[in-house]
Simulated assay, not measured.
Amino acid sequence: MPMVKSFTQAQWDAASRRLDTLPVKPAHEHRVNVRDAIRSMQAQISSAQKKGYTLEEIVYQLAQEGVEISASTLRYAMQRAAKENRPMQAEATAVPGATTATRAKKGGRERLSDSSSKPAWKTQDGGRAVSQQGSMVIRDAFSFEITPDVENL
Rank of each mutant, 00 (worst) to 15 (best):
P2A: 08
M3E: 15
M3T: 15
M3I: 14
V4K: 13
V4P: 06
K5S: 05
K5Y: 08
S6E: 14
F7V: 02
F7C: 01
T8D: 13
A10R: 11
A14N: 10
A15I: 03
S16A: 14
S16E: 13
R17I: 06
R18L: 12
L19N: 03
L19Q: 01
T21V: 04
L22T: 00
L22Q: 13
L22Y: 03
L22G: 00
V24A: 07
K25T: 11
E29G: 03
E29D: 14
H30K: 15
N33P: 00
V34E: 01
R35K: 00
R35I: 00
D36M: 06
I38R: 00
R39F: 12
M41P: 01
A43C: 03
A43Q: 05
A43E: 07
S47T: 06
A48N: 15
A48F: 10
Q49T: 14
Y53M: 10
T54Q: 07
L55G: 04
A63L: 09
Q64K: 12
E65S: 10
G66P: 01
V67Q: 05
V67T: 05
I69M: 02
A71I: 05
S72W: 04
S72G: 02
A77D: 11
M78L: 13
M78R: 12
Q79E: 07
R80E: 14
R80F: 09
R80K: 14
A81D: 01
A82C: 14
A82N: 15
K83R: 08
K83W: 10
E84N: 02
N85C: 04
R86N: 03
R86K: 09
R86L: 09
P87R: 09
Q89P: 08
Q89W: 11
E91K: 15
E91C: 05
A92W: 06
T93D: 15
T93G: 04
G97C: 10
A98T: 09
T99A: 12
T99H: 11
T99G: 07
T99D: 10
A101W: 05
A101E: 02
A101R: 07
T102V: 14
R103H: 05
R103Q: 12
R103F: 12
K106Q: 08
G108F: 03
G108H: 07
E110P: 00
L112T: 12
L112W: 10
S115G: 06
S116H: 10
K118Q: 09
K118H: 11
K118G: 10
K118C: 09
W121D: 11
K122P: 00
T123R: 01
Q124W: 02
D125W: 13
G126E: 04
G127Q: 02
G127M: 02
S131C: 12
S131H: 05
Q132F: 00
Q132C: 02
G134T: 04
M136V: 01
V137C: 12
I138W: 12
R139I: 14
D140M: 01
S143N: 03
S143C: 03
E145S: 06
I146N: 11
P148F: 04
V150Y: 09
E151W: 03
